[in-house]
Each structure stands twice: as structure tokens, then as C-alpha cells.
Write a protein that binds this DNA or RNA. Structure first.
Lengths: 183, 183
DNA sequence: GTCTATAGGCAGATAGAC
DNA sequence: GTCTATCTGCCTATAGAC
């Protein structure tokens, strides 16, 4: 009976799922392994049976969160841009994008973490470009930077009016960069 | 003789100067008060004679770093954009921009920190817009998000080729958004 | 695999001598 | 104002029982 391995994978997934939300919301340093494990219904000691370190968990959580987000957004690029640069995305507890919420957190971590971030960024850039099997062009990179940067900046700003104006400006720009016929 | 107050202000400035560089480079959590004070030539205990908390120092360091950066860049907007979105800016130890380096760090801090960030962002947006006494328009906001987001993303990415392509794409976009005659 | 217990270290903030 | 010493609390990671 292969039940044990199934339960092992389920525990691992629960930890990962818990980590995705907590890390994306609060960054690496503000989240403790204790919180992640309690949120997953376990205690601290069990953590190291599944991951070797906190940074390894972080690295995998970034990939996992992005994969989950992609699975929930199989829509067209325009719908993605509007949802991404919406006020709802800013305060969202679940399904937030690690690219934006963690962008200035990544540079302080080790290489596997940076690899994860780069992989996710490249994948989303290709998706935004609209051409699945090619390197993203400059317009797609600009559109994605407007999305990621717009959300990151909006989260940092304190003035609601300015936040809405930043989101609107970036929405307009990203849509224009990704329009098939730019006029 | 008003010497004492002068020395007090000098000590405060040394702490602030030290904090600007360390915080901008490594973020809030990765920098200890110990490091800041040693870098300023003092010990931990003296810190609380000048600032009430670490977050208060952070808030003031963001304002101070931005002010210093503005004083060193009295040039035109195009020169600013090219210097900002250059590879040199990414690894720079001094004179880096807290807007980009700390963007996803700010949301986790208290209100005074967010106030500082918002103030600096607004001031730079006005500068980029080219019209000193008006609210920045959508094009200026987009240009600034391309600058801040471009640098933040580039710092996180692991692939040198992708980094250069992101910087180039954002440079092109920011220059186009700020051109007086957009065609 | 998961638990409790603990090792070992570092942080922010305060107290009191000078 | 600056120093040394300390309080208090939290963290990652490990050890060993079950």
C-alpha cells in the first residue's frame, strides 16, 4: 500500500500552500517557519522532514505560487492585465503575484531563489508577448515591467488617489504595448 | 558657545548617512542598528539619543537618501533616465534609489515610512513630468514606474542578458513617454 | 513523520556609569 | 552623548521520544 508516500506529498503540499500565501503577503524575513507550519496544521519540528532550509521553501513557494496563479488565469492577455493592475489585486490575501509583491526582496536571497524568480518572470513575459515559442520582445518586457512595477509601487504608496492614477496609467500603457495592431 | 548642538547634529547626520547606504542596499530587516552605528563610528547605546526607533530611522533615511540623490542629479530628464536605467545603477553601493531598491519592503512598515516613500515618489514624478508646479500626468507616472520597476526587476533577475534587455526596453519606453513631442 | 524540548545565536530597546 | 552591560524576546536548526 503506497499510502505513506501519498500522505508525505500531502503534508509537503500543505506546507507549500501555506508558505505561498504568507511569503507573498509579508516577504521572507517577516514570516517564520513557525507561522508557516501552524498555518499548515503542523509544528515546527516537522518542517525539516520536507525542506532543507527556509530559503529552499521560499524558492519553491515562488514557483508554486506562480504556477497556481497561471492555472487560475488561462484567459487572454487583456483580461490578465486588467485583473493584475486592479485595486483588488493589491490587498488580495490569496493569489497575489510574487513577482510584484517580492521584487525587492529577491536580491537579498541565495541563487536558487533568484533562479525561481527569473524563471517565473520569463514565463510571464512570454505569455504577455502573445507568442508562446519565442523570446519576448521589448514591448512585452515593458508591459510586464509596467504590471509588476505598477503593482509594487501601488502597494507602497499611501495616497489612494495617487494609487488609482498609477494603476490606471500602467493599465493603459500595458494594454497599448500588447495591442496586436499598435496603430 | 553653541558647539554641543553642532556636534549633536553631526552625530545625527553620520548615523543618517550610514543608514541611507545600508538600508537602501539591503533593506530594513537585513540591517541591524549595530551595523548602522558601527558604520557611523559609534556604538549601539548612542542610537536612542538621536532616534526613537529603527523604523523612525528608516523613514528619515529614505527621505534623506532621496534628497541627496536629487542634489546630485540636477540634470535634465533624459540624462536622469539614462543614468537611472543603467547597469551601473544596479550594483551601485552609494547613491542608489530607495524607490526602486526598497519598493516591496515599504508595505510591511508603519505609516511614517510609507509617508516618506509616497513623498519621494511624488516629488520624482513631478520632476520627470517636466512641469514643476503641476500634478504629474499619466505619461510621467508610466515613465517613473518603468524606471522604478525596471531597476527593481533587473536587480532581482539572475540572467545578465535578460537584465540588459529589460533595462533597454524600459529606457526606450521612459524616454518616449517623456519626449515633449511624442509625434 | 510528527511531536516536544532545546541548543545557540542575534535582535531591539533600556539602564546606569562616566 | 556616548559608552558598556543587560533585559527580553524571537529566530533557525537540531536531537531524541514516540
Amino acid at each position: 500500500m503506497p499510502w505513506p508516500s501519498t500522505r508525505r506529498a500531502e503534508s509537503r503540499d500543505r506546507i507549500l500552500f501555506s508558505a505561498e500565501r504568507l511569503f507573498t503577503q509579508s516577504g521572507f524575513d517577516q514570516v517564520s517557519i513557525d507561522q508557516v507550519m501552524q498555518n499548515a496544521g503542523m509544528t515546527r519540528g516537522a518542517f525539516y522532514a520536507h525542506f532543507r532550509s527556509k530559503q529552499e521553501l521560499y524558492s519553491e513557494a515562488i514557483l508554486s505560487a506562480a504556477w497556481r496563479m497561471g492555472a487560475q488565469h488561462p484567459t487572454d492577455v487583456e483580461t490578465l492585465i486588467r485583473a493584475y493592475l486592479s485595486p483588488e489585486h493589491l490587498g488580495q490575501k490569496k493569489g497575489s503575484c510574487p513577482l510584484a509583491f517580492l521584487v525587492s526582496d529577491i536580491g537579498q536571497r541565495d541563487q536558487p531563489v533568484r533562479d525561481s524568480y527569473t524563471k517565473v518572470f520569463s514565463a510571464l513575459a512570454t505569455k504577455v508577448s502573445g507568442v508562446p515559442d519565442a523570446e519576448p520582445d521589448a514591448a512585452a518586457l515593458r508591459a510586464l515591467v509596467l504590471m509588476v512595477g505598477g503593482v509594487a509601487v501601488a502597494r507602497a504608496l499611501n495616497d489612494p488617489i495617487l494609487v488609482e492614477r498609477v494603476l490606471a496609467a500602467c493599465r493603459e500603457g500595458a494594454l497599448s504595448e500588447t495591442a496586436s495592431v499598435p496603430l
